[in-house]
């Protein structure tokens, strides 16, 4: 129940959600809702784990995870962008496809021990009291990458020219088209980017945060939590990062409640009967719902958030919104 340990672990598990949620933000900002995050993550987790196992190189593992997530996301891209299919159903089928592929290709990976992404301290910064042990001590490289990635993603979306094109494609594609932006190409690109990041999030699990391949238990619904987090974060990468970390810490803190025999001077019911732990395991999912209610109310009140063309196929030459 040490708060420093909880926050430290929260940053690690939060990094998974950070990558997945920011990836989804890129896709949704371009107007494509991709509900297949869970499937892409699982495929990425499998691809990363398997590659690292066979080549002995975790970096190649991370690369392959991103490639796998990216490639499979293009199926969603093709179906929603060119065939104008319903994005919700297509995203669901991507979940099935990714999960199925991961299970088929991941046969026999359970119990293996590939080389993992290394963890290390940041010199000097790790010496700072309280902050150091939480943020800069014995974290996986991916956690440090996450610190830099979230602000960079924010800067890219809000302050650069390509970022403006991205937002234009998601807000008013026919206007973007008139300005000479290739709507189709950008949508494919950002669906692909989202897929790569979801794959990376999966590999973050299997090669770093909780190493191993446990078939569908590897991701255990975190892809869906990431999709929920995007709404909570109102399509802002920085909020998504904060939300991810907060979520990770809460999740860890809740699980730690089972440890001590007494809680606030009372007998800990969770310690006496471990089956009460099932209620603790429900908490991340219930918290996601609570976060969604809060996020949805904010979106409704401020009338901002969701990209205007989210979920709407763009057909050249037809009247848009």
């Amino acid at each position: 129940m040490d708060p420093i340990i909880i926050l430290h672990a929260g940053l690690a598990t939060g990094t998974i959600l950070l990558f997945a949620a920011i990836g989804e933000i890129f896709a949704e900002r371009a107007g494509i809702l991709n509900l297949g995050v869970e499937g892409m993550m699982l495929l990425g987790a499998m691809a990363g784990f398997s590659t690292s196992l066979s080549t002995g190189n975790p970096w190649l593992g991370l690369l392959m995870a991103m490639v796998a997530g990216g490639i499979i996301s293009l199926a969603h891209g093709l179906v929603t962008i060119h065939f104008q299919a319903d994005q919700v159903v297509s995203g669901l089928s991507l979940t099935f496809l990714g999960t199925g592929l991961a299970l088929v290709l991941g046969e026999g990976l359970t119990g293996q021990n590939p080389p993992l992404v290394p963890s290390f301290d940041i010199p000097l910064l790790s010496q700072i009291p309280i902050i150091g042990p939480i943020f800069f001590f014995d974290h996986s490289l991916l956690v440090y990458v996450g610190y830099l990635f979230a602000p960079l993603a924010w800067y890219y979306i809000h302050r650069t020219r390509p970022g403006m094109h991205l937002r234009a494609v998601g807000e008013k594609p026919e206007a973007a088209d008139t300005m000479g932006i290739n709507v189709y190409r950008l949508r494919y690109l950002y669906v692909f980017v989202g897929g790569c990041l979801a794959g990376l999030a999966g590999a973050t699990i299997s090669l770093s945060v909780s190493p191993g391949w446990y078939s569908t238990q590897t991701t255990s619904g975190q892809g869906w939590i990431a999709v929920g987090l995007v709404i909570f974060a109102q399509w802002d990468p920085l909020r998504a990062a904060l939300g991810g970390y907060l979520f990770g810490a809460l999740r860890r803190g809740i699980l730690d409640l089972q440890g001590p025999a007494t809680l606030f001077g009372l007998r800990n019911p969770l310690f006496v009967n471990s089956n009460f732990g099932f209620f603790l395991q429900m908490m991340p999912f219930i918290l996601t719902i609570v976060a969604l209610v809060i996020g949805s109310r904010a979106v409704a009140r401020k009338r901002l958030g969701a990209p205007a063309a989210l979920g709407v196929p763009y057909i050249r030459g037809e009247r848009g919104l």
Partner: peptide, 19 residues
Amino acid sequence: QPSGLSNLLQGIVLFMVIS
């Protein structure tokens, strides 16, 4: 075997239907 095959098949079927 492998056990994920029917999962995979379901995903492909759904993709084909919406396409």
